[in-house]
Design a binder for these strands. Structure first.
Lengths: 338, 338
DNA sequence: ATGAAAGCGCTAACAC
DNA sequence: GTGTTAGCGCTTTCAT
């Protein structure tokens, strides 16, 4: 460590303003009684010396650090990133700083991060991860507020914020119905993903509400373009009457779209296509641009942050809160676009 | 705030072990002289009470927080994420926690974050952002270590870690030469991006070293699939002899690949294709999977973290350090794959 | 080897 | 109004 530069302290400011440290504190924080003139002198002195109060010292005293830990199990890839951004934004507005931790889904690393951050006296934690499947509760000291984003806690008494996947599927089904498409197929990720099953259920429900049903059971596979291509081909071959396909992800939808085009059929004229995620760069790069269900991930993060702030403030909530997705209409369902 | 749970302090442990606080400190930190027995008693007492030392208090004393601020100007999208992951990993190993800040390229927000974090007495900063273009130095208090990752500082005395874009272009050119391709085109992003120009220069140099040259000047455009499709078509129409194309990004390469295929030509048989970034999900989802220049972003982050730790330890470096990219070979250049 | 005491930078209760 | 004092939790001389 270099000769650690001695920063100006409250005492330096006090000396310069010709008052006591206590008075400086009051003047700067607007607590207690200070005359306008001394207040001015103090402010001036602080400005001149470039004084920046030591938040650490204050935190020791307050027993509260105005920081939170954000733990992602998932190398903050595509899904956690928007969540974290939303959360960071909401917390930053509340003057809270965010510690970033990538546990890589490793319980040892997770425990390590928790230990270190509890040592830093974080006010709480936000946990996020890729899958919408349930996860074990975070092993924090009792009383520490935790909010789960995207992956709900196995303990129903905990506070979890998740995407409303059922509603996502329903949005797609309703849009098809509205457009007069009636022979709908569904191609999605692995069946062991809660999100996949729930989106399928939502789609089926929405179709039923319009007196329709899927032309075939949902096609469960993988969250990849390649699966989209395979399944797309298969569906178009076995069910040539299909005029609409809802996909569990934008990547799958890209694959399906390519397959449809290669079979000489057109999107959206012959087949309307809806994806999920609204992964902008992928959805808008498609030909035609992809209509998709935006899963509102940044809202998930934002709400998680708000709930955490509430819990820190002594008003914890319980249970799973589902955030509404929204449909983003582009050329793959709208013949006038793309 | 709820009845803020009173955590166990060093005094509680001391009482339980029947020693003084000072002795507990020594025993726990291995400083000073402590008899093995008391050491044991202290350790036991600490474990039983679930004692976790308050890092904040220690930091006040040490005038050092073992935290750093990571500021991204770019909503940690695709490029900053791997950098931040690499940095976080390297810093975590050094017991340093990372504050995450998304300045969204807004100078006001950036200044705000700097203020807050300097108040928290971070030991230094890592700055990252999308573009490889030069940025203004971070406005921190003099003496605060800062390392720039991806976007170098305008001040050459600062320490910046960047991708070696010239080498990236060269890798592509050398690979083409090695495979006997001789009629090479280059399609890339906007010319005002340093990265675009440098990759082009590296490609040209490598070709020259093999006594080749581009069939046409680089095609500068946008970092999008759509531009890739347009440019790909144009190139194949105007220069049907082309047998290799290097693209400034994987997304562009995807567009180019689609264009080639739609003109009835084959990748890699007729045209070998190399992208840049190694954006896994995009590169592997392509048909055939995309050979690409991996820009080693996580290494950029890791090295930035190491340089920052060195600077914090009093051994700052100066100047721009370029990190070597590496070629990842997949089906788009290798007829035996994909 | 251990304890007492002072201090890190800041805040808050209490004098004056 | 303002200064003095004690104390947040921890570390570190300095006695003993």
């Amino acid at each position: 460590m270099t000769e650690s530069l001695r920063r100006t302290t409250i005492r330096d400011v006090a000396a310069r303003a010709g008052v006591s440290p206590g008075t400086v504190s009051k003047a700067l924080n607007g607590t207690g009684q200070v005359s306008p003139e001394t207040r001015q002198r103090v402010l001036a002195a602080a400005a001149e010396t470039g004084f920046r109060p030591n938040a650490l010292a204050r935190s020791v005293f307050e027993r509260r650090s105005y920081t939170v830990g954000m733990i992602t199990t998932d190398s903050f890839e595509r899904f956690s990133v928007p969540v974290m951004l939303g959360a960071e934004d909401a917390l930053g507005a509340g003057q809270i700083s965010v510690f970033l931790c990538d546990s890589r889904d490793d319980p040892i690393r997770e425990k390590h991060y928790i230990d270190v951050l509890q040592g830093r006296r974080v006010d709480g934690f936000i946990v996020t991860g890729r899958s919408s499947n349930i996860r074990q509760p975070l092993a924090v000291e009792p009383g520490t507020p935790v909010v789960y984003a995207l992956t709900p806690s196995a303990n129903p008494a905990d506070c979890s914020i998740v995407v409303d996947d059922q509603a996502a599927g329903a949005l797609a089904g309703e849009h098809f119905a509205r457009m007069g498409r009636s022979r709908v197929a569904h191609i999605t990720g692995p069946e062991y993903f809660d999100a996949a099953r729930e989106r399928a259920a939502g789609l089926v429900d929405a179709l039923a509400a319009a007196s329709m049903e899927l032309v075939a059971s949902p096609f469960y596979g993988a969250w990849t373009e390649e699966w989209g291509r395979q399944a797309g081909q298969m569906v178009m071959r076995n069910h040539p009457e299909v005029d609409a396909i809802y996909c569990g992800s934008d990547l799958i939808a890209r694959g399906v779209g390519d397959a449809i085009r290669e079979l000489g059929r057109s999107v959206p004229k012959d087949v309307a296509l809806i994806g999920t995620d609204n992964w902008e760069i992928v959805a808008t790069g498609a030909r035609p641009p992809l209509t998709t269900v935006d899963t509102s991930l940044s809202d998930v993060g934002r709400i998680a942050a708000e709930r955490l702030l509430e819990a820190i403030a002594g008003r914890p909530r319980s249970g799973v809160e589902r955030v509404a997705p929204r449909l983003v209409i582009r050329g793959s369902t709208d013949p006038t676009d793309g």
